[in-house]
């Protein structure tokens, strides 16, 4: 059995209108659905917004590079400190 071809599918505005009407009736009949319609997208916005903000601050390419160089400089300083104390290097 072949799968239904795309050309067989027709766009029917009355069917779309019926489904919209169904959801309008559902939302009108339940204020919890209406609240959820606003609440969950708001939660998503906040969670992903803050997460992206955090990632951008801490894990960006340049942030990683800067941290790497800072760490290498710290290691270099730690290694060279005894030599500097001993006067081997200026």
């Amino acid at each position: 059995m072949s799968a239904p071809s795309i050309s067989a599918v027709t766009l029917a505005p009355h069917r779309i209108a019926a489904m919209v009407l169904r959801y309008v009736y559902l939302l009108r009949s339940s204020w919890t659905r209406l609240v959820e319609l606003i609440y969950w997208p708001a939660v998503q916005l906040l969670v992903w917004g803050f997460l992206q903000f955090y990632i951008a601050q801490n894990s960006g390419f340049f942030a990683r590079e800067r941290r790497f160089h800072r760490r290498r400089a710290d290691v270099g300083r730690a290694v060279s400190r005894p030599a500097r104390l001993l006067g081997v290097i200026p």
Partner: peptide
């Protein structure tokens, strides 16, 4: 409302 939705589905 249910009958309206189905009636519209069937035009």
């Amino acid at each position: 409302q249910n009958l309206k939705v189905f009636g519209r589905l069937y035009a």
